[in-house]
């Protein structure tokens, strides 16, 4: 479907096989308790998370050339968290208040003043005072 995605799948499957076939020393991962997933089902799940992140990043306008590097620098847990919560996670930005934010803010202020009976801006409000 997409070239970067293809590369990503290839890299991930390569690491999957590497992990299976190499008899290793006890790793620092084993010590830290967040040990590598034992079943291949878990591994597949984590690969899917990374693919999900790649897809969402592409939808959200991230430059496809850099998606692979960005995902590669995340840990499995981080990739899973992003895959599940990207819509609700905070994203720090520079701008002060945006125009839309300001409009919403003014709307709510006027709504409250309407409800308090100080103003009568909207047709649908009924003052709760008197």
């Amino acid at each position: 479907m997409n070239f970067s995605k293809l590369i990503l799948s290839f890299v991930l499957s390569a690491t999957l096989f590497a992990q299976v076939s190499l008899a290793q020393i006890a790793s620092t991962e084993a010590l830290l308790g967040n040990s590598a997933p034992s079943s291949s089902k878990d591994k597949l799940f984590q690969m899917t998370s990374r693919e999900d992140v790649a897809k969402k990043f592409e939808e959200m306008g991230v430059d496809p050339k850099i998606i692979e590097a960005r995902i590669a620098s995340m840990s499995d847990a981080e990739a899973t968290e992003i895959a599940h919560k990207i819509d609700t996670l905070p994203a720090g930005a520079d701008a002060g208040m945006s125009i839309i934010g300001a409009i919403v803010f003014i709307f709510i202020v006027l709504l409250v003043t309407d409800l308090l009976g100080v103003t009568k801006v909207f047709n649908f409000t009924k003052s709760i005072v008197n």
Binding site: G61, V62, I66, R70, S73, M74, I82, P90, A91, G92
Partner: peptide, 15 residues
Amino acid sequence: SRTLIPQKGGTLQIE
């Protein structure tokens, strides 16, 4: 290019 998610207009803590 490694931090911005254009549609979110910002950067996730993880990133």
